[in-house]
């Protein structure tokens, strides 16, 4: 049997507020994510979706429990070791794009490469922008000169530029209109079809429909996990890359 990409055991996260009573954002979550999956993480606001995603993506450390990513136990690594894991294996996409202002699309995509020892920045960055269907004549444009959908494509290209094992997206369509939202979800579907593991956090049932598997969270626990919810096939690949 193939080793799962991510496996957590009894994962808990308590946010300590001013050293007094903690907020238990996550309680005893055990979940397995296999390579090539397209997972949607849904649930009410405050149910712990982002908290779980941050732990799976090595952005945060659990209060207790374990996370094994690609065969490596990561829950006890220190900050810099986690950063290194993120650099090699994880790509993040955020709701508000988080692009550097007054910086070209290309340079924004180059950013993760700065923290690797790869000598060429522009080459992989261009390739990544092409993969997400970002128009080549806009490579030099700053985020302020791009539409929301275009900005999110740049952010996805940035998440892809280090060729990560897994792509995490926290409400990637939250700031987009429905057309742009559909395009971005179609892009995720296509990336998944090409073999990339994708985890999308969302409120939106429409968005969750693109995934093959939906994890529903409530009060810091996974209350339903169904790979049985059949995903509607996304639009054809040609449309995505246009």
């Amino acid at each position: 049997m193939e080793q799962p990409l991510i496996q957590t055991r009894e994962l808990s996260r308590v946010y300590q507020k001013d050293g007094t009573v903690g907020v238990a954002a996550l309680t005893g979550v055990s979940v397995v994510i296999r390579r090539g999956e397209f997972v949607a993480l849904v649930g009410a606001s405050g149910s712990g979706k982002s908290t779980l995603m941050n732990l799976l993506g090595c952005l945060d450390r659990p209060t207790s429990g374990s996370v094994v990513l690609d065969g490596q136990e990561v829950s006890r690594l220190d900050e810099d070791e986690l950063a290194e894991v993120r650099s090699r294996k994880v790509g993040f996409v955020f709701q508000s794009f988080n692009l550097l202002p007054r910086t070209s699309a290309l340079e924004n995509v180059e950013l993760p490469l700065l923290y690797t020892d790869r000598p060429d920045l522009a080459g992989p960055a261009r390739a990544a922008l092409e993969v997400v269907g970002f128009p080549a004549d806009r490579f030099d444009h700053h985020p302020g000169e791009l539409s929301g959908g275009q900005q999110q494509r740049v952010a996805i290209a940035r998440a892809l530029v280090n060729d990560p094992e897994i792509l995490f997206a926290d409400e990637p369509t939250g700031n987009l209109d429905s057309t742009a939202s559909d395009e971005i979800m179609a892009l995720f579907t296509e990336l998944n079809r090409q073999g990339r593991t994708v985890v999308v956090v969302t409120h939106d049932a429409e968005v969750a429909r693109h995934a093959h598997r939906v994890l529903t969270m409530q009060d810091g626990r996974i209350v339903s996990d169904t790979a049985a919810v059949a995903a509607e096939p996304g639009p054809p690949a040609e449309e995505v890359v246009s």
């Binding site: 810099d80 993040f92 955020f94 988080n98 923290y115 940035r158």
Partner: peptide
């Protein structure tokens, strides 16, 4: 803060 968080998310170590 946002920029710092982002840089770290994409792999920057503390020393960077």
């Amino acid at each position: 803060r946002g920029e710092i968080g982002l840089r770290k998310a994409v792999g920057a170590r503390s020393r960077h």
